[in-house]
Write a protein that binds this DNA or RNA. Structure first.
Length: 179
DNA sequence: TTGAAGATGATT
DNA sequence: ATCATCTTCAAG
């Protein structure tokens, strides 16, 4: 029973650290279709499949927020996988990222779509996610986690959105995964 | 202390 | 094509 993290997981199959602490490019196609669960204290829940993600891969990836080294804002990306990295863009949109890999391997998956809600800013607004979720652990949290689901058979890949400033080859890497 | 840029979304 | 809106970080 040591693969379970809490009593929640006796009924459901919450993904644990072993899922997250791998290479982001390996996880990306696997995480599509997995059930994202957002729970509130009053019992309200939103359960939707992850439908679109983007990979941000380490300090050499010029589009990655960790490309210029560790800062106060991005430091959680350098932690072990399974925690949440939240940050604000354009002064108004919160981005929901899942940190992957192991310590000092700053990778993350940007959640761009859940169900038929597409757009990273729309996702966080719908799920009511903001800076308070910075560092939240998906393996143990009572507010948000992922559950196992059948693998997605068909998905498409393409270049990431909004990173033209990163230049080649990063603008062209097909690191956007969509059902 | 300041300012420029930004993993966006809604509207024109 | 433009604007709304503000944090972060590096430069001065």
């Amino acid at each position: 029973m040591d693969r379970f993290n809490s009593k929640d997981d006796l009924l459901n199959s919450r993904l644990n650290h072993t899922f997250y602490q791998r290479d982001a490019l390996t996880i990306a196609p696997e995480i599509l279709g997995k059930t994202l669960v957002r729970a509130w204290p009053d019992g309200t829940r939103i359960c939707l499949p992850i439908s679109e993600v983007e990979v941000y891969l380490g300090t050499h990836d010029r589009a990655c927020n960790a490309s210029k080294g560790k800062t106060e804002r991005n430091q959680i990306m350098f932690a072990n996988g399974g925690v949440i990295y939240m940050y604000l863009v354009y002064g108004m949109h919160w981005m929901f990222n899942i940190v992957t890999g192991t310590v000092d391997q700053p990778e993350a998956l940007l959640i761009r779509g859940i169900g038929n809600i597409y757009g990273p800013g729309r996702v966080t607004r719908h799920l009511q996610l903001d800076k308070h979720f910075y560092g939240e652990d998906l393996a143990t949290s009572e507010m948000i986690w992922l559950e196992e689901a059948p693998p997605v058979k068909r998905y498409s890949t393409g270049p990431r959105v909004g990173i033209n400033y990163a230049g080649e080859p990063w603008v062209s890497m097909p690191w956007r995964y969509k059902i």
